[in-house]
Structures are given as C-alpha cells and as structure tokens.
C-alpha cells in the first residue's frame, strides 16, 4: 500500500488521483501506524514551510517521517521540508537532506516560477525512460541549492536542485502529478522501486 501523508498543505488529493490514473491504489492518511507500515510513502504539499512544519510537529509526524525506512517521495513543499532549513519563515525543517532552501532573488525573472521547465543531469532511477531535458510543471518561490544530493537540475535564476536523493529518501521540486506523461513515468519509477 502507498501512503500519502495528509497534512495542512494543498494538493494532496491531486497525488492520489495521479496514482489512480496509473492504476495504483493509495491512502491519504495522517495515521502514524498506517504510514509506518506502508510499502512506500509520498510526502506532497504546497503551502508555507513554517506552518507546515508546525503542523507536522503538533501531529508527531516530524519524528515519524525521519524514521521511515521504506522509499519516501517528497514533492514540492515536501522536498523543502525534508531539507535542513528553509529561508521561508526562517524555518528549521526535517534535516534528511543537508541542502539549504533559499528564496529566488532576481531583478528580471518573476517569482514565483510558474510553468513548465526542463530537468537535466539525471542521477536517479526516478528518471529512467525520460528524454533528455524533459519538461515538468513547477510552481515555487523557494529552491533547493545544488549539492551532492542533487539528482536532477533545472535552470531558473540559477541552476538549482529539481530533485534530491539520500538513501531511501527521494524528492522532487516539481509536480509529477501535474506533469503529464513525464510525471506519470516518474511516479511509475518510484512505485517500482524495490
């Protein structure tokens, strides 16, 4: 069973619909045991880092998430919360990734970045079967810097981490659940992880 972590962030339902479209059953839950025992866990979300972290702490989901041993996929805010610290609300996050989250600063380009952009320099099985520089849908004002944990890169203002990986923790800044056929391939690759 795939568990999608339910918390006070938007877009959780969209991930479940996307899994349905590729024929995968899932449950949206904040139940500690269900998440702990799931085959795989998806940690989605859009919203504000500080409010989301507070909610996770209140529900004891913060300790649960960092203890997970099965494959975990963070999406968008999920990726940012898995990092050590976010400039959004000067928030200490879960610390799975050592990568910092910073605010885009550009005199020219618009913030948030909204729309379809390429990913490249794939270094994860999540991206198996994709064409080079595949397009994904992305919406964000904060970004993960490049680091040794980077498994895909996107350019906006500067090159940043479109994806990160550390042991069983996978994370993408973009929205695979809204990225058409490319996103479906990435979700299938995650589902098929051992």
């Amino acid at each position: 069973m795939i568990a999608i972590i339910k918390y006070n962030a938007g877009n959780v339902q969209s991930v479940q619909y996307a899994l349905q479209r590729i024929g995968v059953e899932s449950v949206v839950t904040d139940d500690i045991d269900t998440i702990y025992n799931a085959d795989k866990v998806i940690f989605p979300g859009v919203g504000h880092a500080q409010f989301a972290m507070q909610y996770l702490r209140d529900k004891n989901l913060d300790k649960l998430i960092i203890s997970l041993q099965q494959p975990v996929l963070g999406i968008c805010l999920g990726l940012q919360l898995l990092c050590k610290h976010s400039e959004e609300g000067d928030t200490d996050c879960l610390g799975i990734f050592d990568t910092p989250i910073k605010l885009f600063a550009s005199p020219v380009l618009k913030v948030p970045q909204i729309g379809w952009n390429n990913i490249y320099n794939y270094k994860s099985t999540l991206f198996d079967g994709l064409a080079d520089e595949a397009f994904v849908y992305t919406v964000h004002s904060y970004y993960a810097a490049l680091s040794e944990e980077t498994t895909a890169v996107t350019d906006y203002v500067l090159p940043y981490s479109a994806a990160l990986q550390q042991n069983n923790f996978y994370a993408v800044q973009f929205h695979p659940e809204k990225s058409g056929a490319v996103g479906e391939t990435i979700l299938k690759n995650f589902i098929q992880l051992p």
Binding site: Q13, S14, Y17, A18, Q20, R21, Y137, V139, H175, E177, K178, S179, G180, A181, G183, E184
Partner: peptide, 8 residues
Amino acid sequence: VAANINIP
C-alpha cells in the same frame, strides 16, 4: 477534472 487530467 482532477481525476481525469494530468496538467494543472
């Protein structure tokens, strides 16, 4: 719509 389409 949300169940059937894969774009925003």
